[in-house]
Computed example of a mutant assay.
Amino acid sequence: MVDRETLPYRDCVGVAVFNQQGEVFIGRRKADDNSDDTSEVDAPWQMPQGGIDKGEDPLKAALRELHEETNITSVSLLAEAPEWIYYDLPDEALGIALKGKYRGQRQRWFAFAFTGHESEINVTAPGGGKFPAEFDAWRWEKLGNTPDLIVAFKKQAYEKIVEAFRDIPERFI
């Protein structure tokens, strides 16, 4: 058994992209090869996120991850969450998920306005297929609904994201 307390958090970024209606982009995670459950109801949805490379500025990491996961580059910065947001892996994933090296993630979250056309979004072949697909579908969703759509162990983190960016959807009304 891996001792949770001896493992660090992985530094990552998260990205909330808002459309002109004040809705946020979410992608449905591709089912693992070992999973036979690919139903839309049970498949986890989330906003784009990913690791910060050594020495990389978090804002640049957010823009890079957004492009690598969604193909989106047409954005304008709206806000940065005021603090790091953490989540811990569940016990059964400890020592396995995140290459077994981390207890969870410490995330810096950014909110962007999407300024492009939806035809720019391509989650199945981001970067023209240059990057591996992490999502198999996407949609716009109300920010306040996202904690109920995410995997259970990230729900508290998503509640903090909603709190950090709660005023943003109103800017579009």
Rank of each mutant, 00 (worst) to 15 (best):
A111Q: 07
G128A: 09
A157S: 12
T115I: 00
V162H: 11
E163T: 10
F153C: 08
V123Q: 08
I150P: 10
D148F: 15
Y158R: 13
V162S: 06
R108L: 12
D148N: 12
G129W: 04
E141V: 00
F135I: 05
A137M: 02
A157L: 15
F110E: 04
Q156Y: 13
E159T: 07
R103E: 08
Q107M: 15
A125L: 10
P169W: 11
V123L: 09
N145T: 09
E118P: 01
A133T: 07
T115A: 03
R166N: 12
S119L: 07
I121T: 06
F131K: 05
E159H: 13
F131M: 09
A164M: 13
I121C: 03
G127L: 02
A111F: 08
P132N: 09
H117Q: 14
N122V: 04
G116Y: 14
F135A: 09
I121N: 02
V123F: 10
R166I: 14
H117R: 14
P147Y: 05
T124I: 15
D136W: 00
E159G: 12
G104K: 08
E134Y: 10
P126W: 09
R139E: 14
W138E: 01
A125N: 13
K154Y: 11
G144H: 03
A133W: 05
W109S: 02
L149E: 04
Y102P: 14
R139K: 15
P147H: 08
P147T: 06
Q156N: 12
F110D: 04
V123S: 07
K130D: 04
Y102K: 08
K142V: 00
F110G: 04
I150V: 15
Q105G: 15
K154Q: 12
V151H: 10
T146N: 00
I161W: 13
P169N: 07
F112N: 05
I168L: 13
K142E: 11
P126S: 05
H117P: 00
A157P: 02
V162P: 07
G116T: 06
G104F: 15
A125G: 01
R103S: 06
F112Y: 10
L143P: 03
G116C: 03
F165K: 09
P147F: 06
V162L: 03
Q105D: 14
D148Y: 14
E141M: 09
Q107V: 12
I121H: 06
A137T: 00
S119N: 12
R103Q: 14
Y158I: 01
I168D: 01
P132Y: 10
W140L: 03
F112C: 04
F153I: 01
K155G: 03
K130G: 00
V162A: 09
Q156M: 11
G129T: 03
A157D: 05
P126Q: 07
F131N: 08
T146H: 00
E159C: 13
V162M: 04
H117N: 14
D148E: 15
R166P: 00
F114G: 01
T124Y: 04
A113N: 11
A133H: 07
R103W: 10
Q105P: 05
K160V: 06
K101T: 07
W138A: 02
D136A: 02
W109I: 10
T146L: 06
